[in-house]
Simulated assay, not measured.
Amino acid sequence: MATEKIAIHTEYIPLGQFLKLANVIDTGGMVKIFLSEYSVFINGEQDQRRGRKLYVDDVIEIEDIGAFQIVKEQNN
């Protein structure tokens, strides 16, 4: 399975915001429920904290959803 690249323009992004940016969930209100139902692994370690800071090069794997990598947004 291919790893989808998700670009951010800030130093980090909280896990809850990342889930919206990656189109995994539709609204911020869904974060708590989503994290209680799906296992999320960040760089191979399970972490369900919606405020967990994700940085460039972090890899996020979500069971039954897929894998994502945080990349730095390129300025054109």
Rank of each mutant, 00 (worst) to 15 (best):
E61A: 14
K20N: 10
Q48A: 12
G28M: 07
G44S: 11
L21E: 06
I13C: 01
Y55T: 13
I42A: 06
L35Y: 05
F18N: 00
R52P: 00
I60P: 04
G66I: 14
I13A: 01
D58R: 07
G66M: 13
K32E: 05
R52D: 02
D57Q: 15
E63R: 12
Q46K: 15
D58T: 10
V24D: 04
E11M: 04
Q48D: 13
R49W: 04
S39V: 09
Q17H: 07
D58L: 10
V31L: 01
E63Y: 10
R52A: 10
G51P: 03
K53W: 10
E61H: 15
G28N: 08
V31Y: 00
Q48G: 04
K53D: 12
I65C: 08
E45G: 07
M30D: 15
D58F: 09
M30L: 12
E63H: 12
Y38I: 00
F34A: 05
Q17S: 05
F18I: 03
L21M: 08
I33H: 05
S39G: 07
K32C: 02
I65D: 04
G44K: 09
R50I: 02
G66Y: 13
M30E: 15
K32S: 09
N23V: 05
N43D: 14
Q46G: 15
G28A: 09
L54D: 04
V24H: 04
R50T: 00
L54S: 07
I33R: 06
K20L: 13
E37Y: 04
D26A: 11
T27G: 04
L15Q: 01
P14S: 14
D26E: 14
G29H: 06
K20D: 08
V24N: 04
G16R: 01
I25M: 06
Y55L: 14
